[in-house]
C-alpha cells in the first residue's frame, strides 16, 4: 500500500491517493490532499463544499448526489469544477476523505 507523509505522519492511501481510513480525516490532512488535486489553497468556498460532503458522508455513508451538492451549497456545477479542477467525485470527495467512487461514474 502506498503512503503519503503529512505533518510527520504516514497516511495510508490507495494508488489514486484516496485515504484508506475515512475516520483519520482532519482539516490539516484535507489541505494536503487538496494540493494533490490542483487546489493550491483552500478558500472559504472550498471549505463550504468539502465540509458539506464530509457531513453528508458521516450522516448517510455515501457521497451526496451532485445536483443536491450544487443546490445545498449554492454553487453551479461549473463553479464546482472551477473550485475543484479534477471534479466533484474525484477531487472534492477525495479532499473530504471519502473512498474512491465505484461503478458507473
Amino acid at each position: 500500500m502506498p503512503y503519503i507523509e503529512v505533518l510527520g505522519q504516514k497516511i495510508e492511501v490507495d494508488e489514486d491517493g484516496f485515504i484508506q481510513d475515512p475516520s483519520i480525516w482532519t482539516p490539516e490532512l484535507a489541505k494536503e490532499l487538496a494540493k494533490m488535486e490542483e487546489v493550491p489553497e483552500m478558500t472559504e468556498d472550498h471549505w463550504k463544499v468539502v465540509n458539506y460532503i464530509r457531513d453528508y458522508y458521516l450522516k448517510h455513508g455515501i457521497a451526496p448526489m451532485i445536483r443536491k451538492l450544487c443546490k445545498d451549497t449554492g454553487f453551479s456545477l461549473k463553479q464546482i469544477y472551477e473550485l475543484f479542477p479534477t471534479g466533484p467525485a474525484k477531487g472534492a470527495c477525495k479532499i473530504a476523505g471519502l473512498p474512491k467512487p465505484t461503478g458507473c461514474v
Binding site: K59, H60, G61, I62, P99, P101, T102, G103, C104, V105
Partner: peptide, 8 residues
C-alpha cells in the same frame, strides 16, 4: 455498485 446505503 456505488455502495449506496439505505439512508443515502
Amino acid at each position: 455498485h456505488m455502495a449506496l446505503t439505505p439512508s443515502g
